[in-house]
């Protein structure tokens, strides 16, 4: 079985998704061997299933749904339902996905929502379906209701990192940076080694620092916090392009802010005695970090775009963005 079938198609590029969905008919035909058509006691004796089989079915289902091939998606869904039954949580969610995707009008979407409510009234512990409900609310443009839903869900299960991350995203969409930061910190409490979430938190902090008024102590504090988050993501993952990119832009911004602060005499040199926050970093340290980030970014861009062995896994768009950032920097120096 090819490995593309095992890759979840939700984030794959449109081109891989379309090849996957074009393979769907072949895939179904290949799965229907004479082994599976044997009568009852015999088909239980022979190995007709593998670990990959149902994962592949699910991936084909999602790919077909994404490309708009509803018939093939329905075939896959039927196979899954026949195997695992209607009351299986995962199958319920997939069925819901199918109905959402094929709903053509607002009324049909409301019908789907009602069916979710009905299932949840019977059994409110189907978390996968509660997530689906929140996602549908977000999809139809009711983010505040989705937030309320998620908060209720997280009250019941506060260790669900995925839901915390989604809640952070929803808050961010509403422009509520403080709440988004809180949610991302909750994610990191559950999964402390997730280097991409450290970088994400750094990004959100950087965004919120951009909204603060210049010269305020808050801005300096938020920026240095953001820089520290990026540093942590790099500590957890060598040559992390996103982390170095973030480190570079935060240190550059921080250097500007620190320059502004230096003219005024009051610079807090020790940690805050009340809140226990760390003091803002020294100018020399920030300069050093900025130089390190520039050097590392240049190395990653050079080796990544040359496609050296072991360096070919970077995203093209991310490499391009890093190159642009470096180019902007050199132009500034030339001027």
């Amino acid at each position: 079985m090819s490995t593309t079938l095992l890759q979840p198609p939700t984030t794959a590029s449109p081109r891989t998704t379309i090849t996957l969905s074009q393979q769907a008919t072949h895939f179904f035909a290949a799965q229907r061997t004479w082994l599976t058509t044997l009568p009852y006691p015999l088909n239980r004796l022979l190995p007709t299933e593998s670990q990959e089989k149902w994962l592949a079915y699910e991936n084909v289902f999602l790919a077909c749904l994404r490309t708009g091939d509803n018939d093939a998606a329905y075939t896959a869904l039927q196979a899954l339902t026949a195997r695992f039954g209607n009351d299986n949580e995962r199958v319920m969610v997939l069925g819901g996905l199918y109905q959402e995707a094929t709903a053509s009008s607002q009324a049909e979407l409301e019908e789907v929502m009602r069916s979710y409510d009905e299932i949840l009234k019977e059994d409110p512990t189907v978390f996968a379906l509660r997530k689906r409900r929140a996602a549908l609310l977000k999809s139809v443009g009711k983010p505040t209701e989705a937030i309320g839903d998620l908060i209720k869900m997280l009250d019941a299960s506060p260790t669900d990192a995925e839901a915390w991350a989604e809640l952070a995203d929803l808050y961010l969409g509403q422009g509520l940076y403080e709440q988004a930061v809180y949610c991302l910190e909750e994610v990191l409490l559950v999964m402390a080694n997730a280097w991409n979430m450290h970088a994400r938190l750094g990004e959100v902090l950087f965004l919120s620092a951009g909204k603060m008024e210049a010269g305020s102590g808050d801005k300096l504090k938020t920026l240095s916090e953001s820089m520290r988050r990026f540093c942590r993501s790099i500590e957890l993952c060598d040559d992390y392009l996103r982390g170095y990119y973030g480190l570079k832009i935060t240190t550059d911004r921080l250097l500007e802010v620190l320059d502004g602060v230096k003219q005024k005499p009051q610079v807090a040199s020790t940690s805050d005695p009340v809140t226990g926050d760390l003091a803002p970093p020294s100018l020399a340290a920030v300069k050093k970090l900025s130089q390190l980030a520039t050097a590392k970014l240049a190395e990653i861009v050079r080796r990544g775009s040359a496609g050296e062995k072991g360096w070919d896994g970077y995203n093209e768009a991310e490499l391009g963005a890093a190159r642009e950032l470096l180019d902007r920097d050199t132009q500034k120096i030339q001027r």
Partner: peptide
Amino acid sequence: ITEVGVGGGNPYAGLEERAGFLDIRGKR
């Protein structure tokens, strides 16, 4: 990915992709 559960990149990527909250209509 070599087999089910082996390989497959960043194990924490799911926190940003969030398959459980898949916006299928947007994706379509």
